[in-house]
């Protein structure tokens, strides 16, 4: 029955991986839903966050927690600036231009990271314990990441449900014209959502650097899967994105278990393409 233990281990790892993916998809979904722009460079924001944690911890010797806080604020500021400097001037142009301009940012951030930090793989050199549970090995860092991601999502959910600004964020993704009648300045909400999306990328970075080395191209490994989860879950649908994250992470994890990791991703992407044909409004969206 060794086989089964490994299978369960793969499923559990899939769930744990899904937590971080859900967090990232949520951040992207927030921007996508509110501003109606897909940040192709979203995973590169995560990369920037990972480098700032690495640099703060390794170069300036700051405690990890401080580095994480700095990274969250730094990436939130970056998200704010991306909207303010790059997206805002072209909001009125075809949506594809807005998508492509963030592609330009992707190149810029990747290359700048290469320029500043070279292509080397870097890590914090942490050695977190591995939990042994009924003959299964579960990485402690993955568990921390999963729990933190869940907590962050609950906090965000409360913010969106309980505050006026949160209500405005939900409202604007449903009708961006009519909110103005209620006294909402959309430009301000766009900036808030962009900063919030950035902050979530910063938090995601903190959770990922526990498990992965950072290098300039790391965004490529998380970016595409994050967009797909975001679209699969349905635009502006937080619960949908959450479930989609776990569906995709299971496909990847189980595909990786039965075949190899790449095939896990292939299955997940093919699943995405097929789902787009069957339910273009997302897994849980209502067709309008």
């Amino acid at each position: 029955m060794i086989f089964d233990i490994f299978l369960v281990e793969a499923i559990i790892n899939g769930i744990l991986f899904g937590g971080v993916l859900a967090l990232l998809a949520l951040g992207l979904n927030l921007v996508f839903g509110v501003v109606d722009v897909v940040w192709i460079c979203y995973a590169e924001l995560v990369m920037v966050g990972m480098y700032s944690i690495y640099w703060g911890n390794n170069h300036f010797g700051l405690p990890l927690v401080i580095c994480v806080v700095i990274a969250i604020f730094a990436v939130a500021l970056l998200g704010f600036l991306i909207h303010f400097l790059v997206i805002r001037p072209i909001l009125g142009t075809p949506p594809i231009n807005q998508l492509l301009v963030t592609g330009g940012l992707l190149f810029f951030m990747q290359s700048l990271a290469t320029l500043l930090f070279t292509g080397d793989f870097r890590n914090l050199g942490l050695h977190l314990p591995v939990l042994e549970l009924a003959e299964m090995y579960i990485s402690f860092s993955r568990l921390i990441a999963f729990v933190t991601a869940l907590l962050a999502m609950v906090a965000l959910y409360m913010f969106l449900k309980r505050t006026y600004l949160g209500a405005a964020i939900r409202a604007i993704s449903q009708d961006r014209e009519v909110v103005v009648l209620m006294g909402v300045n959309p430009q301000r909400v766009y900036l808030v959502a962009s900063a919030l999306g950035g902050g979530l990328a910063g938090l995601g970075a903190a959770l990922l650097i526990l498990q992965y080395d950072v290098h300039p191209l790391i965004g490529i490994s998380f970016g595409p899967i994050t967009f797909m989860i975001c679209v699969l879950g349905g635009l502006g649908n937080m619960i949908g994105g959450f479930i989609a994250a776990f569906v995709m992470s299971q496909l990847i994890s189980l595909g990786g278990f039965f075949l190899e990791t790449e095939w896990g991703y292939v299955i997940a992407f093919v699943f995405f393409i097929i789902m787009m044909f069957i339910r273009p409004q997302g897994l849980f969206g209502n067709r309008s």
């Binding site: 006026y164 209500a167 409202a171 009708d175």
Partner: peptide, 17 residues
């Protein structure tokens, strides 16, 4: 032009934004 996927109360809350 209500916000279709928000509750009545949330719609009213937006009125007091």
């Amino acid at each position: 032009r209500l916000f279709p996927s928000m509750s009545i109360e949330d719609n009213l809350r937006m009125g007091a934004f």
